[in-house]
Amino acid sequence: MPATVDSGLPGATAGSAAQLNTFRHYRHLTLELAISQFKLRYTQSVLGYFWSLLKPAMIFAITFLIFVGLFKIKDGTQYYGIQLLLGIVTWTFFAECTGSSMQAIAGSAGLIRKAYFPRSILVIAASMSSLFTFLINLTIVFVIAVGLHQIDIGLRIVFVIPLLLELYLLAIGISLFLSALFVQFHDIGHLWDVLMNLLFYGSGVMFSLTYVLQRAHLVLAVGQTLAAGQKLAVGAKLFGGTTVPPPSNLWAVILVCCNPIMQTIEDLRHALLTPQAPWTELVVTGHLAAVNQYAHLDDPWLLPVPFLVVVLIVTVGALTFRARARTFAEDL
């Protein structure tokens, strides 16, 4: 016999007004949970909420000192400092959001065992406090950039909204996936820490895409092998045939190119700060080919890849979460 829980007995009609009421109630619950989590996060600390603003600033200071002060790295892009800051702020959001949302389910065992509501509310509520901090940090970056005259404001600033939405969706998709698995496998937490470390270097936080293309010999290496006749399905479409040394790191390039975090950070820099080095535009216009004289990263095929990755991750995350949410109350 199938197991079902109906909301109404036969003959009952579920009015759309009732559904609207339910929606309103859950929106309210999400907000209340987010507000109390926000308050709880900063109790028992002297500086309180200030920490969330202080942390990216301190990371920025360290990174800037090491890369610019110590290694004298210049990536040739405009306003390297402010670009770095924007990258760090964006990355901090992503890292904090996934990190705290991962424990949203396991950390609310009491609530889940005793009250009914859609479990995804807990994950979304947990992400909201990171999102709020991120928006404040973005405003601060903007103000600093204006103050230092390191910004070229243009109409492209409107793209900030869809880009933030994309990044938030990505973070939610990953959070749903992680939080659902974290209930039974706490190993996920350690694994994600390691993966985040890898992602940090693969997301262009400390350097722009232009820099990668100019400096990365791995890219130079790609084209030649392809020209030499190797039929790598993805690679063949990605890179036109030219004469360069054999590739050893083709997979790394492709991964970086498929990384939506890299794409959002790069496009945010473009939309907010400088017309230079936008990921999406480079792909569309074939501008990448000009930047890199050896390989042609100008195939429009690449354009939708980061967006498709986001859609894929959100779908997998939501489905995993839905399947596992049925037994959260029992598993916890």
């Binding site: 016999m1 199938p2 197991a3 079902t4 829980v5 109906d6 009250a115 049925r326």
Partner: peptide, 8 residues
């Protein structure tokens, strides 16, 4: 809060 294995 729990889902039944069988029944309605």
């Amino acid at each position: 809060i729990y889902r039944p294995d069988a029944g309605r």
